[in-house]
Design a protein around this nucleic acid. Structure first.
Lengths: 219, 219
DNA sequence: CAATGAAGCGGACCGAGGTCCGCTTGCTGG
DNA sequence: CCAGCAAGCGGACCTCGGTCCGCTTCATTG
């Protein structure tokens, strides 16, 4: 039961504010000191290289630290934990994706009908995760944080909003969680790699799911 | 890439047969030697006690071994890993539940309509998981095995069967995975504990989801 | 009942994630 | 330019899950 927030390791954090440090998408980066920013960049570069050389499963935190010529403690200070580091590797893509569905052109962005946006959203996520499946699997936070991570919350909120618009009477939050569940990396892994399904089938499944979800239901 | 099957630690396993060792529901228990069976029982008893005394999060494998007066290696030999041990703690309940929906009285068991059985199934699972949430959370296997565990497969197969019956035209497998996703311990944890939703709302959500899923959809 | 070998046992050992804390360094205000 | 100090650093250290392998014990067979 210790404070789970890594950015302020020694003293108490200044106030009750969470100060998300590793925002992974967010407006105000915490304004790193010059050397810290340099180390952060070196770590991300080293991690990227190691991941593509040895596969994410064989990349240890110590190895990343060594490859970046940095102490192990520095990695944890910067990224909190392994999940944080791996999520940071996905951050750039994530930001582009968020921009696309928040303010990009339709059908993903505003301008199309909510249903159409949902259809586009799922397909985009399916493809994105499918393309970098190992990384997404490894970056998956543990159960208790799965739903609190910044990227998840943004996606979830978006889906919930579209759903409320498309099917006003329903419990948008629960339906949104259900739809989000279909897009879990672990499920995509299971269906494509363990069951051998082609991605197209998952896409059809998504379209079907959206249709069923957005169709009005009696009672 | 070593053999992930723990029951045959030294030599090669006799054939290609998986021989599930920790069946966690299954017909033929592997016929343990007398001392092994005794140790298994002691371990389960010790684990149960430690879990209710200190909470599952604070129970280490070494502590369980010590409490059962057994070597640490024995715990791993018997249960494979921590997840295996925790799943074994849920096994008894799981078997009862399986019996109930496979051959018990309606609406859970055969005799009711597939839709009614689905409704009953979800509510039962929600309540069961809700009642022992911490244990279910801790016993959740890692992503790559979530869908391969015996209990999951049994439940999933059941749901898929009911769905194929209730809505013949659809992709039963994908719909079943979607419904199963709604019953994930991690999601139930998030909604009830982190969002503060009452269980009744989750149940309503399940009913709604089943309705939408089983309603015929055009095109 | 004795021999035999497979199943089981235990605890030393290992690797990796994560923490701690004394030292260093880049910023800032005087 | 200097002093002060918070931010940052690094690597020893800890914990815990998981493995290994030589020894023991149970069951079986003749």
């Amino acid at each position: 039961m210790s404070t789970p927030i890594p950015p302020f390791p020694r003293g108490q954090e200044p106030s009750g504010a969470p100060v998300p440090l590793e925002l992974t998408v967010g407006p105000a980066a915490p304004q790193l000191r010059a050397d810290a920013a340099r180390n952060r960049a070196r770590l991300l570069e080293a991690a990227t290289r190691l991941v593509e050389e040895h596969g994410v499963a064989n990349v240890t935190m110590e190895a990343v630290a060594a490859a970046a010529s940095v102490g192990k403690g520095t990695v944890f200070r910067r990224f909190g934990d392994r999940t944080g580091l791996l999520m940071a590797l996905l951050d750039h893509t994530e930001q582009q994706f968020q921009a696309a569905f928040l303010s990009g052109p339709p059908p993903l962005g505003p301008g199309a009908s909510p249903a159409d946006r949902l259809h586009a959203f799922g397909c985009r996520v399916l493809r994105e995760i499918h393309d970098r499946l190992d990384l997404y699997l490894a970056a998956e936070p543990d159960a208790s944080r799965r739903f609190s991570s910044a990227p998840y919350r943004v996606r979830f909120t978006h889906v919930a909003m579209l759903l409320r618009e498309a099917v006003p009477g329903a419990d948008g939050v629960l339906l949104a969680q259900t739809l989000m569940g279909y897009l879990e990396p672990a499920l995509i892994h299971h269906l494509t790699r363990q069951c051998g399904m082609p991605l197209e089938r998952l896409e059809s499944g998504w379209h079907d799911l959206v249709k069923r979800t957005t169709c009005p239901v009696s009672d």
